[in-house]
Design a protein around this nucleic acid. Structure first.
Lengths: 237, 237
DNA sequence: CCAAAAGTGTTATTTATACACCCATGT
DNA sequence: ACATGGGTGTATAAATAACACTTTTGG
C-alpha cells in the first residue's frame, strides 16, 4: 500500500510551503442553575479585547517535530474543558461548528472550532477554574455581557443547537442531577426552549419514556415546597 | 475601543510563535441520478493515496502578508465547489463537521473542515470538472470505492446528516428539478432514507405542504410511462 | 385549614400507518 | 383491453394540545 515512491514523497514534503491559520478550540460551557441557563465566561487578561468577557478556549496543539502531529481535535476540546473547569468526566461534550471569517481575530488568521459542553447542576460546585486565568464566572446565557471576537454568535449557535436537539435526543438528561423528578426535567425543557410546558402533557411524554425503558424509578423521594415527588434516573444503555 | 496599548500589542504580535495545522476544505457533493444517491469523487494524482479516489477539496487560503488574512471559510467552500463542478449558484452548501485526528494525513497536520453540497439532477449535465485535476466521476454514495484519508468517514457523516435532516428541513427540494411531481419528491425521500415510502401516505404529507404554502402547483404535466402527473414547484420565501 | 405543587383524567385535533381501490393513459 | 402508475379514500392507532380535576404534603 505504501510504496517506496510514496515514502520518498513524504520524506521530501515541505509542510511549511503555504501559510497556515491558527486553530482555536473554544467552548460554550452551559448549565442550568435556579431555572436559568448559564454559560461559563472568562475575562480576558491580554489584548485583544482585554478586560472583556470571552468563551474559554485555547489553541490546538500541533506537534513541531516531524512525526509528532500533536493532539486530536476532540482531545484538545476535552483538555480545554478539563483545564477550565477541573471536570474530567461526566460532562457532555460535542463539536458545534467551525467559525472561519478571515478577520474574526485581529491578531492573525484564527479558525475557531467551537464545541459545547453541558454540565449537570450537581457538578457545578465542583468546578474549579484552571490555574492561570483571571476572572471566571457563570453568566445568564440569554443575556450575556459584551463578548470578545465573534463569541456572541458562537453562543447563539450553541443555544440554537440545544433547542433543536432537546426533543429528539437525550441531552436534557445532561442538565439534571443523576436522579431527578418529572418537574425537574420539565424545567430543563422550559428553560432550553424558553416556553411553558404543560405539566400534564409533559408527564405523558415522561411516562412513555419510562415504558420505553429510557428512564426508571429510583428509590427515595424529593422533598419540595409541598407534596414530595418521586425521583427517577436515566438508564444509560 | 481599540486603545493605543492594544494597537502596540497587535503591531508586535508574532503569529509564527506556535506551529499551526494546515486546514483543508473537503466537499461531499451529492446528487440523485436514476433513483440513486451519487457522490462526486476525484482520483488523486499525487501522493499520498496516489491513484485512489478522494473527496474533492483544497486548502484554505490564508494570507501571507500582514493585514491580509485570506478568504472566509465559507467562501473557500464555495470556491472549491465552483472549481470542482463549475457551478456557482443554485447549489445547496452547508458545513458538515471538522475532522481533526492528528494523523489523518501522513504528510503533516491537516484539519479537514468538511462541507456537503446538494446538486439538483437537472444541473448534473452542466458539471464541468475543474481544470487541473485528473479523473472525476460520480459514484454510488452508499457503495463507494476505497477512499483516501478518512474520507469514508466523512462521507458516512454526510449521509447520516441528510438522513436526519430530510424530515424537518427543506433539503429534499435541493435534490429535485425546479418543477417536480409528487412521486419524484417521494423518490428522493426513499433514496435518502433507504426505505420505502407509502405513495398514499406520502401524498398526504405533500398535500399538507401545499396547504401550508410551501409548495405550489406549476403549469404543465410530466409525461410518464402511464398517466401524466401534475407538477409542482417549491415556493422559496 | 389552606396554599402549593404532585399527580390523574377527559376530550378534541392532528399525524402516522397500513391498505384497498378507482382512473386515465400509452402501448 | 389492459397493465402501469397516478390519484383517492378509509380505518385504526398514536401523538399533541388544552384544560379540569383530585391528592398529598408543609406550614
Amino acid at each position: 500500500m505504501s510504496g517506496t515512491s510514496e515514502k520518498r514523497f513524504l520524506a521530501r514534503y515541505r509542510a511549511e510551503a503555504f501559510p497556515r491559520p491558527s486553530v482555536a478550540v473554544d467552548l460554550v460551557i452551559l448549565t442550568i442553575v435556579d431555572c436559568e441557563l448559564r454559560v461559563l465566561l472568562v475575562e480576558r487578561k491580554e489584548h485583544p479585547f482585554r478586560g472583556e468577557w470571552a468563551l474559554p478556549g485555547g489553541f490546538l496543539r500541533v506537534g513541531a517535530k516531524r512525526g509528532d502531529f500533536g493532539e486530536d481535535l476532540d482531545a484538545a476540546a476535552e483538555r480545554e474543558l478539563r483545564e477550565e473547569t477541573g471536570l474530567s468526566s461526566g460532562v457532555y461534550l460535542e463539536q458545534l461548528y467551525t467559525f472561519g471569517k478571515a478577520n474574526r481575530d485581529p491578531r492573525t488568521r484564527v479558525l475557531s472550532v467551537a464545541h459545547y459542553a453541558l454540565v449537570r447542576p450537581d457538578l457545578v460546585p465542583l468546578v474549579r477554574p484552571g490555574g492561570d486565568v483571571g476572572e471566571v464566572a457563570w453568566h445568564e446565557a440569554r443575556r450575556p455581557p459584551r463578548l470578545a471576537f465573534d463569541h456572541r454568535e458562537i453562543l447563539q449557535t450553541a443555544l440554537a443547537r440545544i433547542r433543536g436537539k432537546i426533543d429528539y435526543t437525550d441531552i436534557a438528561f445532561e442538565l439534571v442531577p443523576p436522579t431527578f423528578t418529572i418537574q425537574e426535567l420539565r424545567a430543563v425543557h422550559e428553560v432550553v426552549k424558553g416556553a411553558h410546558q404543560d405539566p400534564g402533557n409533559f408527564r405523558k411524554r415522561f411516562e412513555r419514556m419510562v415504558e420505553d425503558g429510557l428512564i426508571e424509578r429510583a428509590p427515595g423521594k424529593r422533598l419540595t415546597a409541598s407534596k414530595p415527588a418521586r425521583v427517577y434516573r436515566f438508564r444509560r444503555e
